[in-house]
Structures are given as C-alpha cells and as structure tokens.
C-alpha cells in the first residue's frame, strides 16, 4: 500500500484525501466516525503530494516492487566519500 498513514499521528484533517491527484485516499463514514482510508493503492502515482500537505507528518511512502528501479554499480566509481559506507 503506497502511502501508509500512521493513525497515532493523524489528526483527520482530511487534507491528504482532498489533495491526492488520483483520488487514492478517501474519507469514509463509519457509524458517525470519519475514517481516512487509502482506498485505491494501485492507482497511486507516488507523487508525494499527500506527504507534502500533511502537517502532522503522518504519512510515509512504501514504494512497491511493481515500481522497482534497476541499477548497476560502476566498478570504477570512486567510492571514497560514499554515504553507504
């Protein structure tokens, strides 16, 4: 599920649902309560608009393996200042 909402941090301001360009996040009414639901995860474009608009820092992205980037190390690349060490 691409955007993951931390319920402990979420203040249910509904901004992510309003802003999402793909209508992935919806507000669902369950018995008087309004729930923020990542309803259409497969329609997410991974644009991070929801993260940028969430003032509670309640959203993190999980990048699905369907969007795996392929990479290759360059044997000759200078790694002396490499962050990964």
């Amino acid at each position: 599920m691409p955007p993951v909402i931390d319920k402990a941090k979420c203040i249910k301001c509904e901004i992510c649902a309003q802003i999402c360009p793909l209508d992935v996040i919806r507000v669902e009414k369950k018995d008087q309560e309004r729930e923020i639901v990542v309803k259409y995860p497969y329609e997410c474009w991974h644009c991070r608009a929801c993260i940028k608009e969430c003032s509670s820092n309640a959203i993190t992205m999980r990048y699905p393996l369907s969007h795996m980037m392929f990479y290759m190390d360059v044997p000759t690349a200078d790694r002396s200042d490499c962050k990964c060490k």
Partner: peptide, 10 residues
C-alpha cells in the same frame, strides 16, 4: 540504499 555516487540507474 541506492547511492548515485556508485550506482547507475537504468
């Protein structure tokens, strides 16, 4: 953990 200093992206 992909570092552009040592890895190329296809």
């Amino acid at each position: 953990g992909i570092d552009l200093r040592k890895s190329m992206i296809e």
